[in-house]
Amino acid sequence: MKRLAVLTAAAAFAALLIGALLDLPAATLDLRPLLAEAMPVSGVAHPVTAVLLNTRGYDTLLEIAVLLVALLGVVVASARADVTGDPGRTLAPPVATSADPMVSALARLVTPLAVIFAIYVLWAGAHRPGGAFQAAAILAAALVLLHFARIVPACAAPSRGLRIAAVAGFAIFLAIAALPLAGGALLQYPPAAAGLLILAIESGLTVSLALVLAGLFLLLADDPGGRR
């Protein structure tokens, strides 16, 4: 009975919303010309990067804060009685069981390439699709692969160095965002230096985001034979 009600409600919702989409009038506010106008002073040539880090930098700044809060939540939720007293200790000896030789070889082969590719994607973000988010995702995937090869152990709580690195991206972004406060508004970079500042922000973000994304996994990962 409940199932039927829920399904009916979902179907009615979808039908109404699709009906609304189909006869929606054209948007009265189009941001594309405004963005095209702002591109020359944004410091980058790729519109999506310009939106992310210049015209709507505020969203991105807060997004990094959200990610850090999520990581904090994972640290708290995955804390276990046997390790809470000793932050920074890695859980289980790193080599509990030997890794599959294929995975090991793959990880050793792919990781350097992933690092190079991530740097390229980060650099390319200024003038074509790419940027900090994608580079960070690639680095995080490489870290997860290294974990499967038993090279990077799962950790119970991030060490001090890792914690500083995870926050560094947000701190750099915040510092650069606050720089123009003396003469203008938050996040209003001087056009001449905008390209350089955005590259600095993105480099910090790449490292921090990669650590946060990989941390989401590594903090939760079960090491076979390590826990239990």
């Binding site: 310009a50 939106v51 969203d59 997004e63 990581l71 939720a77 988010f133 989401l216």
Partner: peptide, 27 residues
């Protein structure tokens, strides 16, 4: 339109963070 594209790009990364947090709570 680059504006919603940039919003969705941040949204995807936030979604995976939310998934990680939800999984931590479930575990």
């Amino acid at each position: 339109d680059p504006v919603p594209q940039a919003m969705v790009l941040t949204g995807i990364v936030v979604a995976v963070a939310a998934t990680g947090l939800a999984l931590a709570l479930i575990r």
